[in-house]
């Protein structure tokens, strides 16, 4: 019989929270958008999602085996990265390209910088940007949804907005327009985002400030055209980015004020790229740029400890 007593530092109670449970919640929150991608783009979206998730898991497992590090595939973070990357790809993407994107995300950005919690930028976003730069034509060919007449090859809502046309708000809401797999259906993404907020996985600060600042910038740009601003809010990768990518724990500030600064930065850069740069969409670049500034933001937004009012330090 083992009669030895455990001696450890207090506290001796734990809330039961775990990294795996958090990642599982994120996966659950991403399911509605996944289902809508199959509804809108057909079964090829399953192939893209499956390829991304599987290759992310394998790259993480393989890298950790080769570098003789403990395997952390069980915490499901690789699954989340795979899902997010897949949601950022057009349905027609050749699968081998998706695999390369996953390699960039998991091996280069995540594992080479020390694995979970250590990456300087969001792996899925870097994966997407690598693909966007390397395979620009495949990445910007968006087939129509199954509900659109075949002959009609319209532009994405972002391209429409860039050409001063306004897309239909209703079709933006339920996703019947061209775009990447997971970004089109605003309602599915909002449901997932609210789930994460209710489960307290993410705080509403980043999504609200991010989308709010884009909305305000759009209002100003268009001379207070509400319709234009709403369309800006609902189109492109903004909702997906604001709820699921900008809120990535590792690459966003951990304190309240820092989150606000970070999210406002994301929103302003997104709006600037959309309105004045040569690209129709800027969410990924905005988040990536702000990811890099996180250590600086945290340095200037460190909270004052209790009772330090009026003490100079």
């Amino acid at each position: 019989m083992d009669n030895k007593l455990h001696v450890s530092s207090s506290p001796h109670l734990h809330s039961g929270a775990s990294t795996t449970k958090i990642m599982l919640d994120v996966i659950i929150a991403l399911i509605p958008a996944g289902i809508m991608s199959v509804v809108l783009f057909g079964f090829r979206s399953v192939a893209v999602i499956f390829t991304c998730v599987l290759s992310c898991i394998l790259f993480e497992y393989g890298f950790q085996k080769i570098s003789k590090k403990p395997t952390t595939v069980c915490n499901l973070s690789a699954v989340v990265t795979g899902l997010l990357l897949a949601y950022n790809l057009p349905v027609g993407i050749p699968l081998w390209m998706a695999v390369i994107g996953c390699a960039a995300a998991i091996i280069v950005v995540k594992q080479c910088f020390g694995g979970i919690g250590q990456n300087f930028a969001n792996p899925a976003i870097v994966g997407r940007i690598v693909m966007l730069v390397s395979f620009s034509s495949a990445m910007s060919t968006f087939p129509p949804t199954v509900f659109m007449a075949d002959a009609v090859t319209t532009a994405t809502p972002m391209q429409l907005l860039a050409n001063d046309q306004t897309p239909d708000v209703l079709s933006l809401l339920w996703g019947n327009h061209q775009g990447t797999l997971g970004e089109t259906c605003a309602i599915a993404l909002i449901i997932g985002g609210l789930y994460l907020i209710i489960k307290r996985v993410i705080s509403p600060v980043i999504p609200v400030c991010f989308m709010g600042s884009v909305f305000v910038m759009a209002l100003i740009k268009s001379g207070f055209d509400i319709n234009f601003a709403v369309c800006q809010l609902l189109s492109g990768g903004l909702i997906l980015g604001a709820f699921f990518m900008a809120t990535d724990y590792t690459t966003s500030p951990i304190n309240f004020k820092g989150k606000i600064v970070f999210a406002l930065g994301c929103g302003i850069i997104t709006a600037c790229i959309r309105f004045w740069a040569n690209l129709p969409e800027g969410v990924s670049y905005a988040i990536l740029l702000m990811n890099i500034t996180v250590p600086l933001i945290e340095r200037i937004t460190t909270p004052r400890p209790f009772g330090w009012e009026g003490i100079k330090k």
Binding site: A17, T19, I22, T72, N75, S77, G115, I116, G117, Q118, Y249, T250, P253, I254, N255, P303
Partner: peptide, 10 residues
Amino acid sequence: SACIRCGRCV
């Protein structure tokens, strides 16, 4: 396990 910087301690 590794800190994921969730900020719950903060």
